[in-house]
């Protein structure tokens, strides 16, 4: 715990997201939070409380109506789309409830995709790294299979490997175990837990499963788009 980087990985400053419409819907209301790594953070709350919306805002997939998301010390609301895409590519990894792998590509190529987009490694290095990631997630020998040839749990692990492709410090997971049976879901949870404990990543996961949330380091509870409780934060522990 002493190795904690005092600089926050990601910060939300009074972030509000309103979905425009005839009757505007407030998805996220004035949320401010700071996450420093490594940590396993759960965002919980009843359905419709804005958990996923908050995650998308943190992941720069969506733009806040007001407020500011700061990633690695850089404010993002004034950035243009290519810049935000670059931050997603290099410092954020995503795992969604549904695996969202590209159906035409093998597991290995799906994992290599973000690496190739970043183009920081040579082809050979990318392959080695992708294989290494799949191996470490218990998928050795499955690299050549396409997503439809894998089980749900395997797909989700490939998705985790893809999220780790460019070695981002922060993984954002949206109900990562939501579509899995209990065994596979336990497997994926363990992997995420290991990412925090062994690799020093920070994982922010949206979940409605309070048992899982209880096994994470910090729990942020949302009600109606606003933070209702924030327990277990490292600062509180320290």
């Amino acid at each position: 715990m002493t190795a904690t980087d005092p600089r926050p990985l990601i910060e939300a400053k009074a972030v509000t997201r309103v979905l425009p419409g005839v009757v505007p819907t407030v998805l996220v209301r004035e949320v401010s939070l700071t996450v420093t790594g490594p940590s396993f953070v759960a965002i919980t709350g009843p359905s419709g409380s804005g958990k996923s919306s908050l995650l998308y805002l943190l992941g720069l997939l969506d733009l806040p109506t007001t407020g500011e998301v700061v990633v690695g010390g850089r404010a993002t609301s004034a950035m243009d789309e290519p810049e935000r895409a670059m931050i997603r590519l290099s410092t954020l990894g995503f795992v969604f409830q549904f695996h969202f792998l590209l159906p035409e590509f093998s597991a290995l190529h799906n994992v290599m995709l973000p690496m190739r987009a970043l183009a920081a490694l040579s082809d050979g290095e990318m392959r080695v790294r992708a294989e290494g990631l799949l191996d470490s997630l218990g998928l050795s020998g499955h690299g050549h299979k396409r997503p439809d040839q894998l089980s749900g749990g395997q797909r989700q692990r490939v998705a985790v490997a893809r999220a780790l492709a460019n070695d981002p410090p922060l993984i954002l997971a949206d109900e990562p175990t939501g579509s899995l049976d209990s065994k596979a879901s336990e497997q994926v949870f363990t992997i995420l837990r290991d990412l925090v404990d062994r690799r020093g990543k920070t994982v922010i996961a949206v979940t409605h499963d309070l048992d899982l949330a209880a096994r994470m380091d910090r729990r942020i509870q949302l009600v109606d788009g606003a933070v209702a409780a924030d327990t277990g934060a490292r600062t509180a522990v320290a």
Binding site: L92, F100, L102, P103, A117
Partner: peptide
């Protein structure tokens, strides 16, 4: 369209 969204969420630029 979904693949386009996936690739964008991974951080592939729109132009690509």
């Amino acid at each position: 369209a979904r693949d386009i969204a996936i690739m964008k969420s991974l951080g592939l630029p729109e132009r690509t």
